[in-house]
Design a protein around this nucleic acid. Structure first.
Length: 953
RNA sequence: GCCCCGGUGGCCCAACUGGCAGAGGCAGCGGUCUCAAACACCGUACGGUGUGGGUUCGAAUCCCACCCGGGGCACCA
């Protein structure tokens, strides 16, 4: 807290007693916050269930669900950057309530996760205690901001009554499989029925009844949407847990904590999100999201259409994936990933030593190093050859680390003339580069070489459309065409007809690694029997409560100890791990799963629980879900349903938004939801940035203690460097909302945050600018209340025509701007109106009341106070937002700027009804125009009705 | 390297999507109040829109090339 702040306004004895000061603002604000709580002003009615009030639902109007990305309750508390989006959604929600909508708006807490657990490890205090304290502090800070949340609907993911349903949803996913034919998830029991009835062949071809119980379970388990898998995962010894692909940064470190991450094969829970890859891409078309987020999701899922092609080799057929089967005639060698399972089988004895060396070198490299595209290509020959199925040529098989085991089939056909990577590799190892396309003349010209099919002269591979050459055999001929798409489809057909391959689709998206070896998360509702078979805990036995312990830390290791093994804190709780249950086969001893879910689990469905937070029968009443989130086919036929407006930062573009969409779709498939998508419209708010300063050692110094001098910035007598960054504790540049409440009040803070720019733009925080909004509220107050007596000075006389017209234009503009989330321009219009009123002798009620109503969404406390002083007894929350009189929006006359050759030379005023000819006549009769023209001949007169006139000479 | 955003008075930002560059706020300057100041109030000046071309009667807005800032992706076959 800064005590030398220049913003504190000492209220001296000369300050008028009834001036709108920070002290008065604080008094008004806390008073109305208490009123709202006591009256339950923001309680939102449901059509059914525990919050049902059908009469109120009917009275409030059409539904609107406004949602913020819910926060992690940090121990550091809020800074003024955090609530930017919350203020935006609050203003919007309040505006919509006044526009006749039944608005659902609340806030919960995403409270499982690492920080609370790490704090617990340090202090020995149970994370539930810190978490609850942090939530309480955050609730206090948010309440002081005047957010119009329905407090009855708030939830925390750590609440057993909440995670009971997170576990229930997990068990739904566990008990489902994806039916490719129907393109949807179905209950696992239906798969069992299909096998039992013989309608679906078993993998081994044996009759279902001939299989043992364990064999049957293995087949079933292989189809579950949540499954255990022995697979390469991201092991992070520094965190003592595995993490998901999405949680690994591009340079191969954990996004939390920045520790090295290693690929290891381990037995872990996975979610079969890849089954939904197509729908997750295709349904993006139904959403109103920014192009940036849509492309990030598309990119992450990474769908590529292509073909699998089978090449014969000494070790049997090797399948490669290619997006360019049309270039098969140019495939002059093959490359396998070093980890490819057939490497040993194809390696000749001569090459065995070299291959073994290369593989161990590749294995020792981190993924980061392997994926550095600027690195020169390395690789080694296996010594054996595969047969190109289209040419019959024997082509050498190499291994190289530029081919990744995790994508496609882990093997490629190399077409060096048409792929830059293959081209570089061929040049490096003197492999043949046959030309199969004739690049256009411009391409050769660009590279300063003569057109030639001798690739020895080519500086790089040619990628794109061009006529094919050398691309025919006895049964297929591409040489007559020059279009890649046509070539691809022709070759794919040939591959399929000749059993050399088939058209296929691959994805970058991998299945979601879902287990973590931590304490502070949702336990899995899973136990294992003596055969090691997983059983789900029945719904009526949920929640599986997180067991008490005082040892929260997973076993962590040196951050680079790649070959350590995870050990969950729950593993140590042997009394809890061993459990006697009756799961239908009588009382038996089971062993509990000791993993917990990742933090994303709780945020995959929280918006659904807001709808029906107290329901102990189902996670959400279907009728309530249909009301708030059902598809609005009345708006457009392909409306997917979901939240009407979701506001949050872009940092969740891939993780949260992908996972939540996936869970939502599973629940939709299983018939629990009417909406296909959770978030119809997504709006990404910007960040509040702030100056940060580093000293000569590069350490951040307290930003509030830095002074600006002619020689630069100085801290404690030492020069410092100004940097730019997101506001936060780590950059030592955080400003707390509590400081702002103290100096100006919450209404001023709200107004400033909304006025400083568009909601989706990032902008720098300037504490010294805040006073502008404070002055505005003081002028507003002074226009209606006598500063020395406190008496209301608003008069009942009618407003003059000018004022009335300005009022109605303001109403018209503010409505439009608020509806479009452009609060900065709405505020500018309101300040303009208020500045106009300031110049009048007295404020008319005719202006005062609509002005207070228009300001109510932005500055609800002072608006409530003025509304009450103007003689009203009800809260302003549900008063109708003013409507502009259309008659007052049009002028009787229009002033036209007159341009001569594009420069403004004069102005003429004509009747608003005047047609183009009349405007032209009036213009040419204008003395100033005649003077400037000075008899020059006119080529053309352009009249844009209502806008301007341009005379062209 | 590729893909998105964005560059407008000293600063944060408007400009009806091609029609008078300026709405609003901060800072500045001049004044009122004051013994003086702070607070508050009144009044003012300020740039031609990152750069260079093009289209047009007319460009901040559309097109091309480039520069700068922010974000995302990156050996994905």
């Amino acid at each position: 807290m800064s005590d030398q702040s220049s913003n504190d306004q000492p209220v001296s004895s000369e300050t008028p007693e009834y001036r709108y000061t920070s002290v008065m603002a604080g008094d008004i604000e806390t008073r109305w916050q208490e009123y709202w709580d006591a009256e339950g002003t923001f309680a939102t009615p449901n059509p059914a269930g525990s919050l049902a009030d059908p009469t109120a639902v009917a009275a409030r109007g059409e539904k609107l669900f406004v949602l913020d990305m819910f926060p992690y309750p940090s121990g550091a508390g809020l800074h003024v950057g955090h609530p930017l989006g919350y203020i935006g959604t609050d203003v919007y929600s309040r505006f919509q309530r006044m526009s006749g909508r039944n608005v659902l708006y609340t806030m919960g807490f995403d409270a499982f996760g690492l920080p609370a657990e790490q704090y617990a490890v340090q202090t020995g205090q149970h994370p539930a205690i810190t978490t609850n304290a942090n939530i309480a502090n955050m609730r206090r800070q948010l309440r002081r901001l005047g957010l119009s949340h329905d407090p009855r609907r708030s939830i925390s993911t750590t609440d057993p009554e909440y995670y009971r349903w997170t576990q229930w949803i997990f068990s739904q996913i566990f008990n489902s499989w994806y039916d490719r034919d129907q393109a949807r998830a179905r209950p696992i029991s239906e798969l069992e029925d299909l096998y039992a009835a013989g309608a679906r062949p078993t993998p081994g071809g044996r009759a279902w009844s001939a299989l043992s119980r364990i064999e049957q379970r293995q087949i079933i388990d292989d189809h579950r949407l949540a499954y255990l898998s022995e697979a390469p995962v991201n092991w992070c010894p520094g965190l003592g847990t595995v993490v998901a692909n999405e949680e690994v940064t591009a340079d191969g470190r954990s996004d939390r904590g920045n520790y090295p991450v290693f690929k290891r094969r381990m037995r872990q829970w996975m979610m079969r999100i890849t089954s939904y890859a197509d729908r997750l891409i295709d349904d993006l078309d139904l959403l109103e999201w920014s192009p940036a987020i849509i492309s990030m999701q598309r990119n992450w899922i990474g769908r590529s259409h292509g073909a699998n092609v089978h090449f014969d080799s000494p070790a049997g057929p090797i399948t490669v994936f290619t997006t360019r089967p049309d270039t098969l005639f140019g495939a002059s060698f093959m490359v396998l990933a070093p980890e490819h399972p057939l490497v040993d089988a194809v390696t000749t004895s001569d090459q065995a030593a070299a291959v073994a060396t290369y593989r161990s070198e590749a294995g020792a490299k981190k993924d980061v190093d392997r994926q550095d595209a600027t690195r020169t290509k390395t690789g080694v020959s296996t010594g054996s050859f595969a047969t190109n199925p289209v040419t019959g040529t024997e082509i050498p098989i190499w291994i190289a680390d530029y081919v990744l085991m995790g994508y496609g089939t882990g093997a490629i056909m190399a077409v060096p003339c048409g792929d830059q990577r293959d081209f570089e590799f061929a040049r490096m190892f003197d492999l043949p580069i046959p030309a199969i396309q004739n690049p256009p003349a411009e391409w050769f010209a660009e590279h300063g070489i003569e057109p030639s099919l001798d690739t020895a002269a080519w500086p790089e591979a040619y990628v794109g459309n061009a006529p094919y050459v050398n691309s025919s055999n006895s049964s297929v001929d591409l040489n007559t065409i020059s279009d890649v798409a046509e070539g691809v489809s022709k070759m794919t057909a040939w591959l399929e007809a000749n059993s050399h391959g088939n058209g296929t689709i691959t994805y970058k998206l991998r299945d979601w690694l879902f287990s973590r070896q931590r304490y502070w998360g949702e336990p899995f509702p899973i136990v294992y029997d003596s055969d090691g078979i997983a059983h789900v805990i029945p719904a009526e036995m949920l929640p599986v409560a997180l067991p008490e312990t005082d040892s929260f830390a997973p076993r962590t290791f040196a951050a680079d100890d790649e070959f350590s093994d995870p050990e969950s804190p729950l593993d140590r709780l042997t009394d809890w791990v061993e459990v006697e249950l009756d799961l239908g086969d009588g009382l038996q001893t089971y062993r509990r799963d000791t993993n917990v879910m990742p933090q994303w689990a709780g945020s995959c469905w929280y918006e659904l629980r807001y709808l029906d937070p107290h329901n102990d029968q189902v996670f959400v009443d279907p009728e309530v879900e249909r009301y708030w989130m059902g598809p609005r086919t009345d708006q457009r036929p392909d409306h997917p349903g979901g939240v009407d407006l979701y506001v949050g930062g872009v940092e969740h573009a891939v993780l949260h938004l992908l996972y939540a969409r996936f869970w939502h779709k599973v629940l939709y498939d299983l018939g629990h939801l009417s909406s296909k998508e959770p978030y119809t419209r997504l709006f990404n708010q910007g960040y509040i940035l702030a100056d940060a300063y580093t000293d000569e050692r590069g350490m951040y110094v307290e930003a509030t203690e830095v002074a600006s001098t002619p020689d630069g910035f100085v801290h404690d007598g030492q020069p410092v460097t100004r940097e730019w960054g997101k506001m936060g504790k780590s950059l030592k540049n955080a400003v707390s909302p509590d400081e702002m409440y103290e100096a100006y009040g919450a209404d001023t803070l709200r107004l400033y945050e909304m006025a400083m720019g568009p909601l989706d733009a990032s902008r720098p925080w300037e504490t010294r600018d805040v006073v502008g909004m404070y002055r505005f509220l003081q002028r507003l107050w002074r226009n209606m209340v006598d500063e020395s007596t406190g008496a209301v000075t608003v008069v009942d006389a009618p407003a003059d025509p000018n004022t009335r017209q300005l009022l109605h234009r303001t109403i018209d503009a503010v409505r439009t701007e608020m509806d479009a989330l452009r609060f900065n321009t709405a505020i500018a219009k309101l300040i303009e109106l208020n500045n106009h009123v300031t110049r009048l002798n007295a404020t008319c009620r005719e202006v005062a009341e609509p002005m207070v109503l228009m300001l109510a969404p932005l500055v609800p406390h002072v608006a409530e106070e003025l509304w009450q002083r103007l003689g009203h007894t009800e809260t302003i929350t549900y008063e109708a937002f003013p409507n502009a009189d259309p008659a007052l929006l049009v002028d009787d006359t229009v002033e036209y700027p007159v341009q001569i050759n594009g420069k403004v030379r004069s102005r003429v005023t004509v009747s608003a009804e005047a047609d183009a000819a009349a405007v032209e006549a009036a213009t040419l009769a204008d003395p100033r125009v005649i003077e400037v023209l000075d008899g020059a001949s006119i080529r053309k007169v352009i009249v844009v009705p209502g806008r301007m006139v341009n005379i062209v000479l």
